[in-house]
Amino acid sequence: MTTATATAAPAGLQTGAPRRGLAGRIVDRVGSGVIQVLMVLLGLFWLVPTIGLFVVSLRTVDVNNAEGWWTVFTKPAELTIKNYSDLLASGFTSSFWNTVAITVPTTVLVIGIAAMAAYAFAWMEFKGRDTLFLVVVGLLIVPIQIALIPIAKMYGDMGIFGSIPGVVLFHTAFGLPFAIFLLRNFFVGIPASLLEAARMDGAPEWKIFVSVVFPLGKPAIASLGIFQFLWVWNDMLIALVFANTESQPMTKALQSQMRQFGSNVDILSSGAFLSLIVPLILFFAFQRYFVQGMMAGSVK
């Protein structure tokens, strides 16, 4: 967020105004007032749905089915944390921990494996390197759907269908192309002199990787880590196919309640809100890395 427009903001208005005389300035003033109001409305438009979810999660099913959440402003006494205590008592906590057990190992694996490959692509010479990297670029947008059926069959044959390691490996594989791409592009920017000095000293490659490349790559690794974490935390499709009721993360647990939306709105709203707390905290705490990662992944 910070990178974007801070410098640009005042330029347009300041330079435009003085030359235009009074009428122009009045137009600018009114225009800027209109823009302010418009932006407030748009901001509300983006904020209100989430607020709605939060309020709904704090009211009972009966109250929610009887009246809109906005009546909370006149009837704050109807708020209750009952939905949350019911949810926690219902075994939802186990799916929370499943989400953690899937997300954390995946993120660590993707970072580790992708960083190694990215270092090789960036700073090692081997035959077919450029072609191989083009394959990685090509794999960037392969739809996950392509692997659902083959891997389900493979997991069935191996007996790991429905297990957490199976879900983690699937996520890791599909996280790699982006991770390798992002890190390789960052690693090629490391000054050659640093690596050459280390190699001249006779340091083994794994040592250069651990003590030079990895520490220097921290900003990119942080961005990647946040993205990877959020993708896996928020995934539903892979969980839907490869997790069972024992290993299911929150998204799958909630999805199974969708059929009776009206009567399950207590579980769904509180569960959905719990599931987005962690991503939101991460997002607000690390928004700088989040945005940097997004930029590096798409434009620069």
Partner: peptide, 28 residues
């Protein structure tokens, strides 16, 4: 957003849904 002072706040609000799962967005 270049025309308002609270651009960062606005961007955070509009950008926030990116962090939320599509499952939760669906419920919303």
């Amino acid at each position: 957003t270049e025309r308002i002072r609270w651009a960062t706040a606005f961007k955070l609000i509009v950008f926030m849904p990116m962090a939320v799962s599509l499952m939760a967005a669906g419920v919303i």
